[in-house]
Structures are given as C-alpha cells and as structure tokens.
Design a protein around this nucleic acid. Structure first.
Lengths: 246, 246
DNA sequence: CCAAAGGACGAACGGTGTTCGTTGACGAAC
DNA sequence: GTTCGTCAACGAACACCGTTCGTCCTTTGG
C-alpha cells in the first residue's frame, strides 16, 4: 500500500530471512504475558493482547499453549518461582513458616491480581509444588500432626490467595490515583457513619477500628491466628499477649 | 414474516394491552438473575442471558440497574439474606460463631460460585451488613478484643469466601458427572504418586492424607484454627486435643 | 388534549476465547 | 537435487460478552 512497504527488497539483503520465521515459543509467550501481567494485571492478559506484544495474531499462540487457562497456569508458576524459600531450621519453624506465607502474599501482589488464579484450581506447576513441599517440611519439623500438615497447605493457601486478591484491588486503586484511594476510604467511612446505630450498635461502635491498619497488617493478624493454632496442635505453649492486642 | 405473526389481532382482544408493558422492575430482574445463578452459576449470569429470561433485550435492564457489578451486588446480598442468624447466647458464643460461618459457606455454595464476588469488593448491602453486625456482636459477647473483632469479620470473611469458591468448583465437577469427579481425583493422585520422592519427600509421604476428607471437613479444620485463635485472644483455655487429631 | 418524561428496545461498538482452513517454510526421504 | 509431508503461522470467522446510542411509544402531569 504505502510506498515504503511497496519498495522491493534491496539486493544485498537475503530477501526472505528477516528474523528467522520460527520465532514463537512457549517461553517467549510466557515472557510476553508476564510483561503484560506486570503492567496491566490479569485482565490485561488476553490472547490477542499477548499476541500483539509478539506482533502476531492470537491464533498463533495455540500451537504452543493449549488455551488461556494453561497460559495462566504457566504464569502463576513463574510467579511462584519468585517466592523465596527458607532453609528449614527446626528451632525457628514458626517464624519461618510465617515469613514464607508473608512472602507468598507479597510476591503475588507484585504481579497484580494473579492470585485470582489460585482460587480457580489448585496450582500444580513445578514451582508451586516446590513451595508446597517446603511448607509441609517446615510444619512437620514443627511437630504439627500429619493430617494438619496436609490440610494446612490447602487451607492457608486459600487464605493467602484471598488476601492477595483483596490487596491487589486496593493496590490498583492506590496507583490509579492517590486521591481516589482516600476518596474511597472517606466515602466508605461516611457510609458506615450513616448507619442507624440502633440496628447496627456493635458495627457502628467499632468503625474506628475497622479502617485501622493496612491490608498487610490485617493479613498478618489472620495469619498469626492460623499459625498460632498450628503451634497449639504441635503442643507448643501459646505466645504471650498474642497478636492485635490493643 | 411467518403467517402466524402476520395475522392481525382478533377483534375481541384489546389490541395493544398484552401483559401491560411496564413489567420490568429491579425485583423482577434480580429474581430472574437468581434463577440463572442457581442453574448455571455466576458465569451464566450475563446481561443478555438475564434479559432473555425476561423475554427482552439487554439494554432494557440498564434502566433499573446501573451495570452488571451492581446486579451482582444485589444478587450477593439476596444470598446473604438466606444465611440463618443465631440469637446470641453468651455461654455458647464460640459454637454459635462457628456455626454461623459454616452456614455462610453452605448458603453461598447453594448458589454456585457467587462467593467469587466477595473477593472483588467488600459486600455492603443491607443483608451483608446485618450479617457483619451479628458476627461482631457474637465475638464481642465472647470478650474477643475490639481490634480483633473488627479485623476478624474481614479476615474470616475472606477465608469463608475463598473456601466457598473452591467448594463450588468441586461441586460443579461433581454434578457434571460422578465419574468425572472420581476421574479427576484419580488422575490427581496419580500425578502426586509420580512425583520424584527424593525431591518431594514430605509431600509424597503425606499423599494419603491430602486426599482425605471432604471440602467441608477441610474448611472446618481451618475455621476451628481461626476460632480457636480468637478464643485464645478472649482469654479462654484451649480446647482439649483440638481439631484434626489423628 | 397536548406535551414532557422516561421505560423499552434494536442496533451497534469494541472487546473476549477459540476454531477452521489455508499458506508457506523446513527437514527428511528418495 | 528434487519432491513431499508435516506443522507452525496466520487471517477470518463464530459466538459470546458489557455497554451506549438513538428512537419509539406509553404513561403521566398540567
């Protein structure tokens, strides 16, 4: 069409080599998708969008990836690979497992709302399995009963993922404009304040404490509830005044 | 087009009354959407699908509902209204709050994957607020510290919703064919068994316990971890051998 | 009785995941 | 060296999705 593209190939260039046609690969697709995920979140990762990133069409991806679900699985496992794993130390198992779960949430959060995948199917990729193995090893080192170990990895995984999803929503709001975040918080507080105190006495009286603390602090509160329960199952004495004391 | 529809109205019928045009309403839309939700899950609830159920077009819904998000909010609150609320009894607060959260999960599960909404924005409808109020009242009755009460409703809500989402996936598989469910379980067990035991020693050794128990049992395990933690914060003595003992 | 108001609705816009049929380049066999 | 089969690349299309626009037509207020 345009004169530029209508120009014949100059003779000193081999006419049809370019960048070697067979350039697409599973790794390239995952890498491109990770870039989109990082920039725009999981909703930005569409087959067309990823294909565009590789300057091709969506149909081309299906030669390397079964469908979008499989692509997301690959993405999640890539993220799971970035979670730092501790070297198990029996004396510090409780601290280590807590830190591991904190790191899990934080790593997921670095990739926006990728955690939504966890809640739609158990992660089974190699990195996810490594994570599960290490988690179970830590709990067993802490003398947590076997049945509790087996269930905890699922139960706590659910909680971590759910918290990461909630955190990603707040993070999105925060980055889309600092004002929008405070506006939202204010309108929420306003809605709460407008509740009829006779029908919601407890709720209204606790409004100040509901908007207290960051997502990360609330997450840690729940996490320590869970880990504390596991420690109790392991026969450890309860910690002193315990978390979230006033 | 067809001869049938081309027929003129018979004279003994008032020509343009039919069923009284103004028939759409917010309630009718929510009711229709609830029907679709019950039958096909939240993914089945599209504006077009709900409109078709009311034998109209999608555009007609927007006069009564701002957008799909608002419709889903209304749906969730409808579901929240079906959760049975206990009459608070100080002596049995722990049992009551446990039962309340068990009922929450079960009620959500009756409406497929509606719980996915919880993880995309805090429910603020009247029934959701009633639920939150009652939950906080129970915890306070149990002498749980105020800050813990305020955070628990969020933290445990996250866990309940996440577990309901996971449960809905299993439920879908179960109803789409009993065979498919057992096939999935078997192939999962097979995948686990094929893991190299030298790299996944703990995981492999615990495979039998990982596939043990129903979703509801696993949920209860985590729930009792959380409630136990809250009871400890309230200064109550720990329960005997505690949940999930072998 | 007429005019303003607003619900109903068909059509369209720009997106989505996925499939189909064709093209064209490569490696192997002859 | 030529032919042939295989398979990645790809454009087009299908069936959806949420939402908006403009128009019709009924209902209501004056």
């Amino acid at each position: 069409m345009s004169p530029v593209t209508d120009m014949p190939e100059p003779p000193w260039r081999t006419p049809r080599k370019e960048v070697s046609r067979r350039s697409l690969s599973r790794e390239a697709i995952v890498e491109a998708a990770m870039g989109v995920l990082r920039k725009e979140g999981i909703d930005g990762v569409s087959m067309r969008r990823v294909a565009t990133e590789l300057s091709t069409g969506a149909a081309s991806l299906y030669a390397h990836v079964a469908n979008k679900e499989e692509l997301v699985e690959l993405l999640f496992d890539e993220v799971a690979g970035e979670i730092p794993l501790p070297e198990p130390d029996p004396a510090r198992w409780r601290e280590q497992v807590t830190q591991l779960w904190l790191d899990s949430r934080e790593t997921m959060l670095r990739y926006r709302d990728i955690a939504r995948f966890c809640l739609g199917g158990i992660p089974l990729g190699p990195n996810s399995m490594r994570l599960a193995e290490r988690t179970m090893a830590l709990l067993r080192l802490g003398r947590v009963p076997d049945q509790a170990v087996a269930w905890s990895v699922d139960v706590v995984g659910l909680y971590v993922a759910a918290s990461a999803v909630e955190g990603s929503i707040d993070a999105r709001r925060r980055e889309q404009g600092e004002d929008l975040d405070t506006y939202y918080q204010q309108s929420l507080r306003q809605y709460f304040s407008a509740l009829p105190p006779d029908r919601f006495p407890v709720f209204v009286s606790l409004i100040p404490m509901m908007t207290t603390g960051t997502d990360a602090e609330r997450f840690r509160f729940g996490l320590e509830l869970l880990v504390g329960g596991l420690a109790a199952l392991a026969g450890e004495p309860p910690t002193g005044p315990s978390p979230a004391g006033p």
